[in-house]
Design a protein around this nucleic acid. Sequence first.
DNA 1: CGGCAATGTGTTTTT
DNA 2: CACATTGCCG
Length: 735
Amino acid sequence: MTELDLESELNPEQISAVTHGEGPQLVLAGAGTGKTRVITYRVAWLVRERGIDPASIVAVTFTNKAASEMRERTEQLLGQAPLATFLGTFHRFSLGLLRRYGERVGVAPGFVIFDRDDQLKLVKRGLEAEGLAEQSFPPRKILAAIGSAKNRLLDAASYAEQAYGFFNERVAKVFRHYQGELRQANAVDFDDMLALAVRLLREDSTLAERMREQIRYLLVDEFQDTNHAQLKLVEKLAGPAGNLTAVGDEDQGIYRWRGADLDNILRFEKSFPGATVRKLERNYRSTETILEAAGEVVSHNRDRRGKSLWTDAGAGAPITLYWAGDEQDEASWLIGRLQELSRDELQWSDMAILVRTNAQTRALEEELMSRGMPYTLVGSVRFYERAEIKDVLAYLRFLRNPHDNLALERILNQPPRGIGPATKEMAEQEAASSGISFWDYLSHSDLGNLPARSRCALEGFRDVILELQRVSEEPSLAKLVSRVLRDTGLFDLYSQADEESAARRENLQEFVSAVEEFSERHGKDEVASGEALIRFLDHVSLVSDLDSWQVERGVSVMTLHSAKGLEFPVVAVAGLEEGLLPHFNARELAEDIEEERRLLYVGMTRAKQILLLTSSRRRRVAGRYQNQEPSPFLSEIPDRLLDVVESPIRLHDPRVAGVERFFGGSLPPGHRVLKDEETGVPGGVSKGRRVRHGTLGTGVILEVEGEGEDLRITVFFDRAGKRKLLARFAKLELI
DNA sequence: CGGCAATGTGTTTTT
DNA sequence: CACATTGCCG
């Protein structure tokens, strides 16, 4: 057993946070200041030095990955395993509560969790039922409104009460419908998990009291990303004077769009009066240059308490900013640069490329592939969201909960077994006229009223399910899954030799392995298969791709959001352009722009030694080339910290810069860009190009100076000789 | 009923 | 450009 040596392992600020006594404390921990360390040491200290029962400590993190890291490190510190402390996400915690006491808030045991696709389907059905067109009421928008209502702890009824205006009143109707269907299916959505947990604790004060007594110390990580429901949950569990340690950094709040409320951290003392507030400002991760640049950027935000990070790591290398021609050029320079760096002592796994949107990863991936460099793409194609996997999951969900009619709908004719829309419609009618559910009708009626063909198809489906239900009584989850794959014909669906089929087969096999691994880790003998099935389905709903990601193979490519909490010796943030970062959809509200700035801040502060930034003049967006302006955030980085590299392509290859670029994004009236086939050379205003002028005739470009409105072009006209023209006025046509 | 083709559409981040 | 949805035909 190792000694807990705080003095030599922690700095004074960290020590006071770790050894904080009773009452709430907020630890404002800047990027790289060792907040994980504080949490793990605090848990270890409470157990070791204070003799606190580990089971009475609850530590909530934002991702499962963070939780398992903390578990590992804490167990290491204590030299014992496994710890009885709850260490997991808000959602996992809430789900645990609901699995035990859910009946008190209206969810029957065995309820399932609807994913985003299910949610959208419910919204669409609600729209249809209310006679609303998807065009004027985009399902995603409706769903966002419902989600945000739930985050604010409004149920359908109270939402309807306060909904004003045309749009919101319709949302309220869809919301009511949506919630009704959830209940009918005995299902909850993601936001329900939190909202119902809060409701449970509000309505059952005895339970709340018991929980508060049991949880003697509550620790919450990434507090800046908590939403209203999560704050209320924390308040319920800790009590106003409770032993809460909240750790967070308002400069790293990047989940506003998901309901996160920065006020939770900015006005912490309002929720927890008398709280001690500490700051961790000593950074152990990055160089001075990186810290200063990132600090300058984020200092432009208004919504912050403000802190200044420092390090004694020394200045380090300057930040390199590359002005790329287009996204291929960007990828090629960036990855070339990484290749150069790998000749030093750096490994591929020491490097990460961070982007704002998943779409940006394409060009990067192509470049990495073509150079044969090892890389891992994080999170773009989620395993459990692949169609073939969702099919199996739908069967499992339905077996566990026959009220899950979304799952039923999915599997009814998958694989195709002759149950088309017409058959489905008829059977639904029959079920409805008998006043029973669709499945009850299928399993308990003789289907005599249906045409023979439909009847046979439905009976086939019924028999498959009934047989599988028998299998699911047996204890082995893995066996059930393979039976599902075999008996339903799902696996045979992909028996062809083509690549896609093979990939899907592999995925299904991987799924079976995942089930086996899960069963082994969760003691397969102890629980009945039904219980195991619930646990597995919960697990699937709660894990993300990032959770299983390890810095193992190659360069990591991921979104800025996924990068939170990680660090790499070399970090590149690509696509620093207006419209991407800050993102187009976040350009209106000051709060949204500040969040985009924080996103860049998060990205920059992931870097330990080397930070690369790129900004492209041109980018393919939805298949069309678009001219891009540099991100305004770039000008917030002091010049002296930047090494600027200009794409060589721009200097001599007008293909990339493009004529639009020279005209500041739009061509003057009367001008057009000739198609490449028309000129033989891809269009662009550059030296040597021939042009035609309305009155001066044809000529050749000698010089191009200035930009945008000030763009001046010197042309040697065949008839009129040398003339300097302001491109804004002169009607020049490239020929 | 099922598969395919053509058409049209929209583009963020995810526990 | 990629995806989803729609419409058509076997």
